[in-house]
Design a protein around this nucleic acid. Sequence first.
DNA 1: CTCACAGGTGAAACGTATTTTCGACGCAGG
DNA 2: CCTGCGTCGAAAATACGTTTCACCTGTGAG
Lengths: 314, 314
Amino acid sequence: MKENFARRPGRGRAVAVAPRPAPPEPGALAAKVRTMVPSMTRSMQRVAETVAGDPAGCAALTVTALAERTGTSEATVVRTARLLGYPGYRDLRLALAGLAAQQASGAAPAVTADISVDDPLSEVVAKLAHDEQQTLSDTAGALDLAQLEATVDALAEARRIDVYGVGASSLVAQDLAQKLLRIGLIAHAHTDPHLAVTNAVQLRGGDVAVAITHSGRTVDVIEPLQAAFDHGATTVAITGRPDGEVTQYADHVLTTSTARESELRPAAMSSRTSQLLVIDCLFIGVAQRTYETAAPALHASYEALAHRHTPRER
Amino acid sequence: MKENFARRPGRGRAVAVAPRPAPPEPGALAAKVRTMVPSMTRSMQRVAETVAGDPAGCAALTVTALAERTGTSEATVVRTARLLGYPGYRDLRLALAGLAAQQASGAAPAVTADISVDDPLSEVVAKLAHDEQQTLSDTAGALDLAQLEATVDALAEARRIDVYGVGASSLVAQDLAQKLLRIGLIAHAHTDPHLAVTNAVQLRGGDVAVAITHSGRTVDVIEPLQAAFDHGATTVAITGRPDGEVTQYADHVLTTSTARESELRPAAMSSRTSQLLVIDCLFIGVAQRTYETAAPALHASYEALAHRHTPRER
DNA sequence: CTCACAGGTGAAACGTATTTTCGACGCAGG
DNA sequence: CCTGCGTCGAAAATACGTTTCACCTGTGAG
């Protein structure tokens, strides 16, 4: 496309289409429309106003469709786009899509309310996601890095690691054990309180015991931790209640945070998110410190599972 | 396996990507790219990553230009756009413009860097928390509400519910089963593939089977789901790969999203966050629908555990 | 080692959307 | 009524997006 010197010379206003007069604006389109409208012909005004009134809708339209909708022709639509500072309709349309996305995202009214019985599912999803995100930032912000570091160091050099958790926390305990096993450490999660105590008394200095309990008062978890503590193991408590009984027997305490709970959303639910974040931090921390052995171990465990997947597809 | 699905004639197989799988999303594009990239061919991956890396820049490009920039052909670009859920490149471009506008206005630089071996712990915590938050919004944004609703309905009225998951997903499976049990449903999580199949063949119409697998290709989970499917149960797949084999035997597919993975952060890690959010949504949804029985059941299970906590409080 | 096959890939044909051209029409002032 | 000026849209011209199809590459069987 050659230079457009054949442009109409008569109208001084319509010079918006010089080589590059101004970069097409992102969202200040409505304003542009307002300032330009007076200098437009009737047909162009219709187009401009339609576009400004419903960016999202118009972004979905082709020139032809928009022309029909405004009762004008394609040529007029293109002319309007030019007047608004875009090289052509295609670019106006792009800007329109951007504008639509902006005002759509701006319309996020922040969902902090509780989940209620008659919330539609879309609301439930939004609220849950929001709550968990909140829990994550709370946890990350409140984590005691010194305690975390100490725990990581202890884990990285442990001869053997026991993890205690019952109920909802048992899953978190298993998650931690699984992860540590994957990088070559000797870790075991105990769900049965009797077996947990039985194992705990086998621990000695250099071993690590981790207790996970949201309430900090779960006896089934406190007992094995105490046993481990008494036998000289390094003990760690991951709990939402730093003042709970469990911390009495813990060398290191990692505090998880609690989200607002409601009838439909028991505390166990949000505490899990928080606990898992702490677990992940521990895992990464340990993996970093034992990178030489962790990396190949991770790889090996991945390889070992490959044949358990269906072969085809990429 | 036999083809005894004549009982339910209307049942479609392998239709996870039907004519209109999901309306093209506005901003959840980066997430979509991540979930789809693994199932893409090399050339398509290049296109998808270029597009995800510089939405603003790419929005200004024509098919031809983008093809050249990625060293591929127009055909590949269009194919990629299709795979991402858009009718064609034109619409992908529109979405790109929207995304660009969004992140321009958001202006949040975000710490998206990978976690590396020598990051200090404070950095690790921040990055992990951020990544998981990202995963949560991605998942929430990409969740197919219709599928979710259908699943919730099926679960709420199920005579019996079986959940399959192995490895990291087994914890998620257990979590779901635990939660459903708490509100009075008959749910069981199967970790042992043999037992899972054995149980699956006992299912019949009105029962629900849920398979959880990030890869979508875990045979130990696919087999029981197929057995359940063949026996007339309503089947649900929770997977990060909507094109995986598991979806062939699933009446409803719930897609989880995938975060960027790195050497220190295997995919299983972020998929868990995503899976758990889906689980929670299912749980709340079911609890809402069965509120009359769910509320007292929740209360009862809470009471039952009270004596397991140390009496004193601070 | 060769062959046949499956699937990914891009060149080019094809159809559609956008842009440009050009003449018709309306209107004001001679 | 004619003339000049400017708006407007139909249709031609072009750019762009989409589809087709043949090639190429890698793979598994003979």
